[in-house]
Design a protein around this nucleic acid. Sequence first.
DNA 1: TAGGATTGACAACGACCGTAGTCAAGGCGA
DNA 2: TCGCCTTGACTACGGTCGTTGTCAATCCTA
Lengths: 200, 200
Amino acid sequence: MTAPQRTWAGTTLTDRRATRRRQLIEAGLELLGSHGTSAVSVRAVCRTAKLTERYFYESFDDRDALLLAVYDQVAQQAHEALVAAVANAPDDVTELVRAAVTSFVELIIDDPRKGRVLLLAPLTDPALIRRGSELLPSFTTLIHDQLPASIDGTDRRLSAVGVTGALTNLFTGYLNGTLDVPRERLVEHCVQLLLDAARA
Amino acid sequence: MTAPQRTWAGTTLTDRRATRRRQLIEAGLELLGSHGTSAVSVRAVCRTAKLTERYFYESFDDRDALLLAVYDQVAQQAHEALVAAVANAPDDVTELVRAAVTSFVELIIDDPRKGRVLLLAPLTDPALIRRGSELLPSFTTLIHDQLPASIDGTDRRLSAVGVTGALTNLFTGYLNGTLDVPRERLVEHCVQLLLDAARA
DNA sequence: TAGGATTGACAACGACCGTAGTCAAGGCGA
DNA sequence: TCGCCTTGACTACGGTCGTTGTCAATCCTA
């Protein structure tokens, strides 16, 4: 029994709701990525998005739902960037890995807020912890799957978790400025890391 | 012009203040290690420590000062455990590294709250970010220093940050139960990680 | 025992939180 | 033009926050 979608100011109701939802998510990204979880309050999000609280609850059940939406959106973008890079890469394994790493690094350089959402937020925010332990290993898995696999299950897991952590810390350091290193150098180091992990 | 330290209930004023300070730090450890930064409010700390807010400000300038004190205490303990392990270890390099890793793993098994304070809190809490980027690399450095060093500065730094991240993620996963692996297996993997890093 | 040191309980300030509700002003299609 | 849909501004509730202050009870030493 959906209403006949009568138009309004040239757009339908669903369109306008979707736009507002996007604005809220963008505001959430800004706050989460720039000032951390504690900065993401319903009021702050609405202030940033220039929308009323009423519209918040139009699109999200509660604060946590927004957090998840922000994270999922960024994770989705990262996933797409990786898949695209891997798909377009030449056959050479090293080049493949380099393409994947580069695409990821570019994503988090282009918008460090996204990097922080992806890498840092899920480490401590209760609402995101489960999500975080799904995505980042899948980053490693995505690449591992492209490579000859001859390692036993547990070691594979240990290795994946380790490599993931190494990459996380390297990227995080790069984001913070803690790790002052040219981008190519960072990329190259990560590539070697992944190749070594796959060989071992 | 210190007062003559007249005694009270068998203890001096300085003693009682120190005791209260310890209680507050212990409460902070409990809250920070078990429920994260956001759980560490002045009121909650005082409730947990069974002390009045007045005594909080007797020992700490503000909330952040307590956070730092908690972190520094745990970091100090970790440092001491590492130094002790390294000092008592045999000459064999592998055994040395194994001793260091074991001592650290035991610390965070014995009291997972400390592990979380050490590994997670400094990643996101504004007050601790600087502290965190000092200590954990020093963990790696402590071991690196025991080993033949033949790598150039930047690579050394990249390697240290990477290894630190790998260890962090492995320990964190172990703490969370996300990484379901026997302790010896974890230790052994970390040992190999460190040895490989030193060789490369 | 008198008197000051020390303690605990608690109130107060202004601010922000999540969430829900009200109400008037305006825009739009019929 | 009429009447409904949509919008923004606003208020309200009960709660927690950091921080400072008050005040009566208690304890010890001199």
